[in-house]
Simulated scan of single mutants.
Amino acid sequence: MNRLIALGFALLLGFGATAHATEYKIDTAGAHAFIQFKIKHLGYSWLYGRFDEFEGRFNYDPKKPEASSVEVTINTASINSAHAERDKHLRGKDFLEVDKYPKATFKSTSFTPKGDGKAELKGTLTLHGVSREITIDVTEIGGGKDPWGGYRQGFHGTTEFALKDFGIDYNLGPASRTVQLILDVEGIAQNMM
């Protein structure tokens, strides 16, 4: 019986620890969140683009940031490099194969504060049918009340990875093997505690 009571208290304490985290919905409807990328073009210049359609949520408690979590789903067909023919190529078999892999996802596994508003976010990125752990360098931009009676929290993140790690092996030259992601996320609180 004592073990059952101890287990009950442990569960209650566990729920109590997470009950103060605020859940945020990423504000894509108001265009206050961006998933952008850049990759060298033949080693001569930078090519920039973005994904226009994605959704996600994150949990964040400034008093316990290490308990933070993030989940994002991206519509891969929404890739936009401001050039229709190039975007058609990027959606095709040489790159994203969006008919076969219409979604990319990210699910965090850890959030490690580094001080001074910096943190390291690790998680599993699934892209082009391949799942791998990536690390995102995060900077807290800020949080507070908005003019509409809500509460918002924003972060900036960067990461880079080799396209080949996700089964994308189209030869753009040795300078174009890695892609950099630039992530700017503003969330709207769903459950202020």
Score class of each variant (00 low, 15 high):
residue 183 L to G: 01
residue 140 E to G: 02
residue 153 Q to I: 00
residue 93 K to V: 12
residue 28 T to K: 13
residue 151 Y to T: 10
residue 34 F to T: 11
residue 21 A to L: 13
residue 169 D to P: 04
residue 153 Q to G: 03
residue 128 H to S: 07
residue 156 H to D: 12
residue 83 H to W: 00
residue 56 G to N: 03
residue 21 A to Q: 08
residue 183 L to W: 04
residue 90 L to N: 01
residue 62 P to S: 00
residue 27 D to A: 10
residue 162 A to N: 03
residue 112 T to L: 04
residue 68 S to I: 02
residue 37 F to V: 12
residue 99 D to C: 07
residue 57 R to Q: 12
residue 30 G to Y: 09
residue 165 D to H: 07
residue 175 A to Q: 13
residue 159 T to G: 03
residue 121 L to Y: 06
residue 34 F to I: 10
residue 4 L to G: 14
residue 157 G to L: 09
residue 62 P to G: 00
residue 154 G to K: 02
residue 166 F to T: 07
residue 73 T to P: 07
residue 180 Q to C: 05
residue 24 Y to T: 05
residue 187 G to H: 00
residue 66 E to T: 14
residue 87 D to K: 04
residue 27 D to K: 09
residue 32 H to D: 11
residue 11 L to T: 14
residue 35 I to H: 14
residue 19 A to S: 14
residue 5 I to D: 12
residue 137 D to P: 01
residue 125 L to T: 03
residue 170 Y to D: 03
residue 155 F to L: 02
residue 180 Q to M: 10
residue 45 S to F: 15
residue 19 A to L: 12
residue 158 T to V: 12
residue 161 F to G: 00
residue 138 V to L: 09
residue 14 G to I: 15
residue 94 D to R: 05
residue 138 V to I: 14
residue 1 M to A: 15
residue 156 H to M: 13
residue 13 L to N: 15
residue 5 I to P: 08
residue 139 T to W: 00
residue 138 V to A: 04
residue 81 S to L: 03
residue 121 L to M: 03
residue 171 N to G: 11
residue 98 V to P: 06
residue 124 T to L: 13
residue 172 L to W: 08
residue 95 F to A: 05
residue 40 K to N: 14
residue 74 I to K: 04
residue 16 G to D: 09
residue 10 A to W: 10
residue 147 P to L: 04
residue 54 F to N: 09
residue 10 A to K: 14
residue 125 L to S: 10
residue 1 M to W: 13
residue 91 R to T: 04
residue 49 G to L: 01
residue 106 F to H: 07
residue 153 Q to F: 02
residue 58 F to G: 07
residue 15 F to S: 14
residue 62 P to T: 03
residue 74 I to Q: 01
residue 20 H to E: 06
